[in-house]
Amino acid sequence: MSYGAWILLTGCLVGITCGITGAILVLRKMAMLADAISHTVLLGIVGAFFVTQSLNGLPMLIGAAVVGLLTALFVQLLDSSGVQSDAAIGVVFTSLFALGVVLISFVGDSVHLDVQHALMGEIAFIPWETFELNGMNMGPKAVWLLGAVLFINVALIMLFYKEIKLTTFDPQYAALIGIPIMFIHYLLMGMVSLSTVASFDAVGAILVVAMLIVPGATAYLLTDRFIVMLLLSGFIGVLSAVLGYFSAVLFNVSIAGAMACATGVLFFFALFLSPKYGFLTKKLRNKMLKT
């Protein structure tokens, strides 16, 4: 595969992985918790680096998952102690993220990990970071990592499909009939952490937020069915990646940034032109009803 194709494939994998997972978060009103987690996994990654002194995939994944879950836990603890939830999210993620950024500045220049990287990823380097199995070149690491996380997320969603759906729609009722709502909550937070860290190399800690939230919100404006919303959200993620990649090449700008912008453009269209819920379509419909 060519250099560009690998980048495109990576972007599409980020789009579909984050899109499917993020749609659930939008419905659970946890978009900002996802935002928080995608910031704080940076600390997990830097932490894993300080422990192992290498940028190895697995320790990074574990570190990020641990810090991601800790973020969710801290927010919950503050929340239940009476701090309003948006402020609780704000204080937890800014603290952990600031710690991550400060720690990064202690990492030597020789290591490929810096603040710039943390913000917008290094998708352009992805195709070079390949790994070999039995002397055979298996392609970029990031693609395999993203593929694995996508597989895990889809499998978990399929396994716990109806539990996820019910705890999202009516958590009290779910608790009543004995569904472990806390388990489902942390399961989802774990999925977010995994998606974030797998996407980190490609699109950076902050732009992954766009990939998590915006496709889900866009799909929410286009469909009235839960399963369709998840699939559509994944598709919109892929579409954003493709659109973003080609505009980035055209204008010679950050590929990850352009992909995130593309999610915004698609959302903008849905917001105004969605057949059922679009701002302009609703206006037009009302106008036609009046005349």
Binding site: K29, M120, I206, A217, G257
Partner: peptide
């Protein structure tokens, strides 16, 4: 729209910031 405040904040935050990054690299 039917989108709630938290998602609206997330969308705005990430897309505006992404635009900033794109312009910065431009």
């Amino acid at each position: 729209s039917r989108i709630k405040t938290d998602a609206a904040i997330g969308i705005t935050l990430s897309v505006f910031f992404a635009l900033g990054i794109v312009l910065l690299t431009f």
